[in-house]
């Protein structure tokens, strides 16, 4: 006998919501961005991390190696991708990181580094900030709050002070400053079982407080919703908030956000070369449909064409990207 898990029912409900607004099935529009997860190794172990990254995650299977990087660079040479979005873990700790950045920049591909800021002060990373500036990498930096207590509660003791130091270092190199072309964005995410507020208002408040207290400048703030996956889901279960949080996400379904979800214009790659619709699907082991499953498949033009129009796999966690003003790796979408 087949039993239906609550998770499956919620996943079905996401399809129902899409269908009610004439948006089912959800399909891709382009492959503009290639988001590559270089692995789970990280110098932080945040309470909300959907990757379950941490300092102990050194297993070669969890982190992209040299051979897979060679293949990645071949894929970038196809000219299909305008943006390379590097994430992790702390992607900079992967020994392949700088080789990838250099190659992508030579191909005129815009590179985003999802940086946790404290990595700038890790051993052997002393020149990382200069390297990023020299290669005009857009830095998308995690900073859950403009004060110490909430930031440290989420990301670990001492992280706030290091983050502020990191932001000052980046500012001194021209990041976040007018007319330098060096873009510094911040990522805000709620510190618990609630949704983020209006991005523009949060951005204004972060700008005012970081400038007032630390003289820090940045370009944009992205407000992200925490998706109920891995560590954040564990927290929701432990704190008895899972059901109410899921209901809140579902209740805030916004068709305008669904229209603009990030998975429609990107492809996600895991450390082992597997392809996914997004980093969240990657963590849930939900590879792309159509039987196309590996980075090597992207060398074929016909495969890339098929992926541009692919049907996107959805489940209950997708309500996190369509709640309220929506959520993506680039902040709100609607």
């Amino acid at each position: 006998m087949t039993t239906t898990r609550p998770q499956d029912k919620l996943g079905d409900r996401f399809q129902v919501h899409l269908a009610e607004h004439g948006q089912a099935p959800l399909t891709a529009r382009s492959l503009g961005t290639l988001q590559v997860n270089l692995g789970k190794l990280c110098n932080q172990a945040c309470k909300h991390c959907h990757v379950e990254a941490g300092p102990g995650k050194t297993d070669p299977e969890d982190n992209m190696g040299a051979e897979m990087t060679d293949l990645l660079l071949q894929v970038l040479q196809t000219g299909e991708f305008e943006v390379l979005d590097l994430t992790g873990g702390a992607p900079e700790l992967n020994p392949q990181f700088r080789r990838i950045v250099q190659a992508a920049r030579q191909l005129q591909i815009h590179v985003l580094d999802r940086c946790n800021l404290s990595v700038l002060f890790e051993p052997d990373q002393e020149d990382l900030a200069t390297f990023l500036a020299e290669h005009q990498v857009e830095v998308v930096a995690s900073l859950p709050y403009y004060r110490r207590s909430r930031t440290d509660a989420q990301r670990g003791k001492g992280v706030f002070d290091k983050s502020i130091e990191g932001l000052k270092l980046l500012n001194s190199l021209g990041y976040g400053q007018p007319d330098t072309g060096l873009i510094l964005d911040l990522v805000y995410n709620p510190g618990g079982a609630y949704l983020p507020g209006p991005q523009a208002e949060l951005e204004q408040e972060f700008q005012r407080m970081l400038d007032r207290d630390h003289g820090i400048r940045f370009n944009q703030l992205f407000a992200l919703t925490n998706l109920p996956i891995k560590r954040f889901r564990d927290y929701l279960v432990r704190s008895d908030n899972l059901q109410s949080y899921q209901e809140r996400l579902e209740g805030a379904f916004n068709p305008a956000a669904a229209e603009q979800v990030m998975c429609r214009d990107m492809l996600s790659v895991g450390p082992n070369g597997c392809l996914y619709d997004c980093d969240f699907n990657q963590m849930l082991a939900m590879p792309v449909e159509k039987g196309i499953c590996h980075l090597s498949d992207l060398l074929e033009g016909s495969t890339r064409a098929a992926l541009r129009e692919r049907r996107i796999r959805t489940a209950s966690h997708c309500f996190g990207c369509t709640a309220g003003a929506g959520s993506s790796c680039g902040g709100t979408v609607a």
């Binding site: 709050y145 004060r147 909430r150 709620p190 510190g191 983020p196 507020g197 208002e201």
Partner: peptide, 8 residues
């Protein structure tokens, strides 16, 4: 919380 205030 949703509008970005903290405990302090």
């Amino acid at each position: 919380l949703e509008s970005g205030a903290d405990l302090e």
